[in-house]
Simulated scan of single mutants.
Amino acid sequence: MSSFNEYHLNPEEFPFLKTFQAKWQVIRDEFTRFNKQASEEELKFTYDVLGPKSKTIKTKSNCKYSAFGILFQGLFIEEYIQLHQIQYPDYGTDEAAQKALLLRKKYFPNLADLIEQVNLIEDSVIRNVYFGTFHPGLDIKLHVNYNPHMNRGYLGLIVPEGDIAMKICHDKLYWHEGEFMVLDHSYPHCPHNYTNYNRTVLVVDFFKTDKPREEVRQFEQEQVAERMQDNPYSLGVFGKSDQAQESDFIKYGLAHQLEWDKALSS
């Protein structure tokens, strides 16, 4: 049994997460149904448009991480696209928003209902909700997610046996189906998947409940404006401040990762 600390948090401290956990199989079923029944066009649109993209978080070799979601910064994806007037190479803003709305209603009605239930009761505490899949061989370089106003919950949906873990500071943590792992991602971390199977979780970012809500809202607004100006495809989730310091690589025994950059583009 892992012990909890300042960066590995006890899910029991956040009762609203139980709403998602109680329906984890329903959420998983919506995800698997989407991947089985969606057309090639729907799949391409979803992974091109509905997933947050990072310019700074790197993976070793060609191993992939894929993600897509329906809630960003407290707004359903179609509202977020319209608010920020995001332009895509293959879609205009209005077209992208309309497609996003149709996909959300078609494939993820239960997940959307759960989000609305929690945010109605908990003053919009849930900020981002998206599916994250680690493909076989994934090895992500040490980084931080500079979101001091939020914690990140991972609800295990599809977790095969084997070495699929999150290294955060000096701990190595494992996901489990139907359970939440809650982390403060402002601490250095690097996940990996050394198995031959995909691992999928539901990422649920939420405001830190021990801070004044108005304070964290203001910080989020300023941070998202900066991130969207730099990279509108980040959906406000990632930014330039996500890079770990060189001293962190040495401190946590990952100095070898500093050499990755030389080969990542080859």
Rank of each mutant, 00 (worst) to 15 (best):
M1R: 10
R199F: 11
S54D: 07
F72W: 04
S66A: 10
Y88R: 05
A100N: 05
T195Y: 05
F249K: 01
L138N: 01
P232C: 07
D171R: 12
Q229H: 13
S247Q: 15
E13T: 01
Q243E: 15
F219G: 06
M181G: 00
D184L: 10
D113P: 01
L254D: 08
I140F: 02
I168E: 06
Y146V: 04
K60E: 11
G92K: 06
Q223M: 14
L202M: 08
D113T: 15
K167G: 03
V26G: 01
G156H: 05
E161C: 04
F68N: 02
P109N: 07
E42F: 05
F207N: 02
I115R: 02
R28Q: 11
K64I: 08
P212Q: 08
D123K: 14
F45T: 10
E226S: 12
V144K: 07
L138H: 07
P11V: 04
K167N: 12
D29C: 02
E78K: 00
F72S: 03
L103Y: 07
L120A: 13
F219A: 13
D171Y: 10
G137V: 07
P136F: 09
K58R: 12
Y65M: 09
F68P: 01
Y80I: 04
A112D: 10
Q221F: 12
E214K: 12
T19N: 03
F238C: 02
L264N: 15
L173D: 06
H176A: 15
E12V: 07
G236W: 06
L183G: 02
Y47D: 09
I168H: 03
H149V: 05
Q98L: 13
Y65E: 12
P212L: 11
I250C: 01
E13M: 05
T59W: 04
M150E: 14
F31G: 00
T200E: 00
L235P: 02
A244R: 00
G92M: 08
K167E: 10
N147A: 13
